[in-house]
Write a protein that binds this DNA or RNA. Structure first.
Lengths: 264, 264
DNA sequence: TAGTGGTCTAGACCACTTC
DNA sequence: AAGTGGTCTAGACCACTAA
């Protein structure tokens, strides 16, 4: 037999799914359920904690426990890197993406800091350096309105970016056209990319920084950007609040039996 | 000031990170910490629950609480769909992938059931049907050894698969070469795909089916497979234990300013 | 000030595993 | 039988929010 708190949680989850409690609506107060004989305060609290961990509700002191509204997943594809956007216009890739999904961009929705640091193992491997070699790290925290959605930290080899706008630590996107435009102007035209994704539980620091509700996972994205000759000009690590993004990729079915000359 | 259970959890997490407790090793028993004055049993228990939710440890009755060993992420790329594997050989796509990563395949690591059901909204949308139209659902639970790693459910339009081996509900992969080979033999050669991924918290049912440790997220994958003329021949939904997989995609930077004739 | 969720305790008891 | 984590209670008290 399932524990009492689990049964209570399941019962409430069922009611939420049925629409008995709609998004934004308050669940019964803990003390109310205690009076109704659903168990002691700890037991009811455990049930509420479970619902929170399952992403169904959020609790806050002074207020109460409300059903969490489902923000639709923002679908992001490779179009967000379209050269036309950052080379010919002055859109920054991530802003272009925002515009494409009908969300406005406001100043102050991205903070940025640039520092010279020692490469971690992952960064060194991506850039073909030794761990401990110096790289520039450009860290951004991106928000939508008040709510942070993801962090994105780009790592560059010093010889690629020294003297460019990228290492100018002024807030906001790296000037007109963004980081790819700066690299382009410096003679490094990006050509292809590799993206690697996996999901995990956030660290306590990430929970705080991204203001994640209890139980929300993060998706970590590793993006390696190459020029046509295979030089890595940027390696970036993003940490995304899972409930806000969906990644989409289109590709041809590979056929190694055919000797094709199309590169990838 | 952070709650007592949070401080205790952080302290233990620190020790785990430092290697004071190595993977597989037991943490102090709850009652031991109670005797040491770390708090009441409930408080210490709360700390252990937090560590479990953060993916650091697993607890079990009768045994104790041990540091969770980190299984390396299995990187999966689009090579697993290589036509040569399932068309010319008799490998099944997912087995080919297993072989490539140095893991053996044993019979019985995949269970399968095929049923005719009414399409859900997502399935109907992918196949261009109306919700409620009939589709074949081929559901698999894939394990590695004893441990389930993911579920994968393929949805087919009846006219594409009726009379083929796919609708024969014998266990194991859909015969020599797998599902894509069957479609190929039936005259539907797959040409390109779209994969969409997002992470979320598992449902209680998924937690049970995939035997997920507390706090482990899942990655949901939606795969749409097309023939060259754009017909959707398969739509599949996978639910993956997040700690076991990493997805990798390579692509060219798009350039909408260039009018290219390469399809995608 | 009143009401919300969150923390904490002390102790009883339960479920499971190992010996 | 002994030892593990898990559940549950009753009640005190804390932290935060709103009127």
């Amino acid at each position: 037999m399932a524990p009492k708190w689990r049964e209570l949680a399941d019962q409430l989850a069922e009611q939420i799914k049925n629409g008995d409690y709609i998004p934004g609506q308050q669940l019964p107060h803990i003390r109310t359920l205690v009076e109704n004989g659903e168990g002691s305060k700890s037991t009811v609290h455990a049930a509420y904690k479970a619902l929170e961990a399952e992403g169904l509700v959020t609790s806050s002191r002074g207020h109460g426990t409300v059903v969490r509204p489902q923000t639709p997943l923002k679908r992001i594809g490779i179009e967000r890197y379209d050269k036309a956007k950052w080379r010919d216009g002055d859109e920054v890739a991530f802003i272009a993406d925002r515009v494409a999904s009908g969300r406005a961009y406001r100043r102050g929705e991205q903070t940025q800091s640039v520092t010279l640091i020692e490469a971690t193992a992952a960064v060194a491997a991506a850039h073909g350096l030794a761990p401990g070699d110096q790289v520039y790290a450009r860290a951004r925290l991106v928000k939508e309105g008040e709510q942070p959605t993801h962090t994105l930290t780009s790592y560059y080899r010093p010889e690629h970016v020294e003297g460019t706008r990228i290492v100018d630590p002024s807030p906001g996107p790296a000037g007109r056209g963004g980081g790819f435009r700066v690299l382009y102007d410096a003679g490094y035209e990006i050509d292809h990319m590799r993206e690697e994704l996996f999901a995990r539980v956030p660290t306590p620091e990430e929970t705080k920084l991204l203001q994640l509700p209890a139980g929300e996972p993060v998706v970590e994205l590793h993006r390696t950007t190459y020029t046509a000759d295979g030089t890595v000009v940027e390696f970036a690590i993003g940490v995304h609040a899972a409930s806000r993004f969906m990644w989409a990729y289109d590709f041809k079915i590979p056929d190694s039996a055919q000797e094709v000359g199309e590169g990838q």
